[in-house]
């Protein structure tokens, strides 16, 4: 049991507002960890801090033993921590397959000269990238639409494509920012299975989610935030019965049923 990601009393203030208030938790390698909490609890800010999109006011983020606090997003990604976005951010001008190929950027090389003169190593690398992209599209079930333009996919498939693209970067830790937002129930079920299979492949997953069905079906551990503070942490069955969590959700806009694993989908956005 080793902590792949260690978040240590992380704080973020926006002017007078404390969005994340000395939050500490740990993501164990090989597990699926979920961060939940009512709207405005600071989940997305927490994600942006971890992925380097914004710098923290104070606190520390350790990833695989390295201090990555305040590193730029591309540096964080190079360390093996890759994220997806709440609003899908595909490269709309590229095909489905090319999107995944872009994901291979980090573990390939080749610049201007390789592009122009195509030496043997570059051709081999390109073939490997192609095989990798095909394999990942197969994995998320998008092999049929590999040639299509990314912009034409239905929203559910765009989500899956974004995940496949992130996997192409071979992350040690995959951050999923509300992956079920905007998906229907069937698509959410498909997503659950993909997340479980990602975990089985050995990739650690950290996700923010509103959809409790998805969280309860996939997460091994849950961290609960409210008003920027961590109010609970533990296994799904403990969280379900935790009085502080129930209080937070009852006090907020969302019903308790969503916490207790009712199948009703909670419609919420940040």
């Amino acid at each position: 049991m080793t902590g792949l990601l260690l978040v240590n009393s992380l704080c973020k203030r926006f002017g007078g507002l404390v969005a994340v208030d000395s939050v500490s938790f740990e993501v164990i390698a090989g597990r699926v960890t979920a961060v939940i909490g009512p709207n405005g609890a600071g989940k997305t800010t927490l994600f942006n801090l971890i992925s380097g999109t914004i710098p923290p006011t104070s606190g520390q983020i350790l990833f695989a033993g390295q201090n990555i606090t305040g590193h730029a997003p591309e540096k964080v990604a190079a360390q093996g921590l890759v994220r997806t976005f709440q609003l899908v951010q595909l490269f709309q001008n590229l095909s489905v397959e090319e999107n995944v190929k872009v994901g291979c950027h980090l573990h390939t090389r080749g610049g201007v000269l390789a592009a122009l003169f195509r030496p043997r190593w570059a051709r081999e690398e390109e073939r490997a990238v192609e095989a990798n992209a095909r394999e990942l599209l197969e994995f998320v079930g998008l092999a049929d639409v590999a040639e299509a333009s990314a912009a034409t996919l239905p929203y559910g498939q765009q989500r899956l494509l974004e995940i496949a693209r992130a996997l192409a970067a071979r992350p040690k830790l995959l951050l999923l920012d509300e992956p079920a937002a905007g998906l229907n129930r069937e698509e959410t079920q498909q997503l659950s299975s993909v997340i479980r299979r990602i975990s089985e492949r050995g990739t650690t997953v950290l996700l923010i989610e509103h959809d409790m069905t998805l969280v309860m079906n996939t997460a091994d551990a849950i961290v609960v935030l409210d008003f920027g503070c961590k109010i609970a942490e533990g296994a799904p069955e403990d969280i379900r019965t935790n009085p502080a969590v129930i209080e937070a959700y009852l006090g907020g806009v969302e019903g308790i049923s969503s916490v207790t694993g009712d199948n009703r989908k909670v419609v919420a956005d940040e």
Partner: peptide, 22 residues
């Protein structure tokens, strides 16, 4: 090529490109 894909990715979404290590 890898270079061209990275360039096109920058045009598509800078945030997503950075998140993939570009």
């Amino acid at each position: 090529s890898r270079l061209g894909r990275a360039m096109t990715a920058v045009a598509g979404s800078e945030d997503a490109a950075r998140a993939l290590g570009i």
